[in-house]
Amino acid sequence: MAQSQADRPEWLPDEYDADASLRERLPIMAEIDGGIELHVGDERGIVEIVGEPLELTENAAECYTLRTGSASKWRQGVWRNEIVVPKEHEAVLKSVDPEQSFEDYERTKKTELRGVDVRIYGIDHERLGREVPA
């Protein structure tokens, strides 16, 4: 169910198009300030609540990685998940434990969901479990 311009919250950027691909939507989601809640779903209909966007990076292969979790005014942010969106392959959700050495952090990442889509709670989260845009 698409929202009309009148129904869109003031904080939602005009550039956010719920019908766009995840690669187009993810950078816009990452810039939203104010404690939004992201939901990640796979092609089987499994949905995970991953918290708010904390940091988006892009590597030389044009792969996006969005760290998600919780933030507070006392801590910069603690991420527990990474949404990885490669340019040429399916997006995945990984669980992580950043409170360890870098080598252990990299070694212990675990892929939780494959072929994922990411949506904003209260905006378009009801689209999860349906066909995922390419």
Rank of each mutant, 00 (worst) to 15 (best):
A2C: 02
A2H: 04
Q3G: 10
P9D: 06
P9E: 07
P9K: 09
E10Q: 13
E10T: 11
W11K: 05
L12H: 04
L12Q: 07
P13L: 06
P13S: 04
D14Q: 13
Y16R: 07
Y16K: 08
A18T: 15
D19M: 11
D19T: 12
D19G: 14
A20S: 10
S21V: 06
L22T: 06
E24Y: 05
R25M: 01
P27G: 01
I28Y: 09
I28V: 15
I28F: 11
M29P: 06
E31M: 10
D33I: 09
G34T: 03
G35A: 07
G35P: 08
G35T: 07
I36K: 10
E37W: 08
L38G: 01
L38A: 06
H39C: 11
H39T: 01
H39S: 11
H39Q: 14
H39Y: 10
V40H: 02
E43W: 06
G45V: 09
G45Y: 09
G45L: 09
I46W: 03
I46Q: 11
I49C: 12
I49R: 13
V50L: 05
P53Y: 04
P53C: 10
L54R: 03
L54D: 06
L54K: 03
E55L: 15
E55C: 08
L56Y: 09
L56S: 09
T57E: 13
T57W: 02
E58L: 12
E58P: 00
E58K: 14
E58G: 01
N59P: 02
N59I: 03
A60M: 10
A61E: 15
A61C: 00
E62N: 11
C63M: 14
L66T: 02
R67F: 07
T68A: 12
T68E: 02
G69A: 02
S70M: 12
S70L: 13
Q76T: 11
Q76I: 08
G77H: 07
G77W: 03
W79R: 01
R80N: 15
R80G: 13
N81L: 02
N81M: 04
I83F: 01
V84T: 11
V85Y: 01
K87G: 00
E88N: 13
H89F: 12
E90N: 10
E90W: 05
A91I: 07
A91Y: 05
V92E: 10
K94F: 00
K94W: 02
S95W: 01
V96D: 02
D97G: 04
P98V: 03
E99A: 13
Q100H: 00
F102D: 12
D104L: 13
Y105F: 15
Y105I: 09
Y105P: 07
E106Y: 05
R107V: 00
K110Y: 05
T111K: 12
E112K: 15
R114A: 09
G115Y: 07
V116E: 01
D117N: 12
V118A: 08
V118N: 07
R119T: 09
I120M: 03
Y121N: 12
I123E: 02
I123S: 04
D124F: 09
E126A: 13
E126D: 14
R127H: 10
L128C: 07
G129I: 06
E131M: 13
E131V: 14
A134G: 10
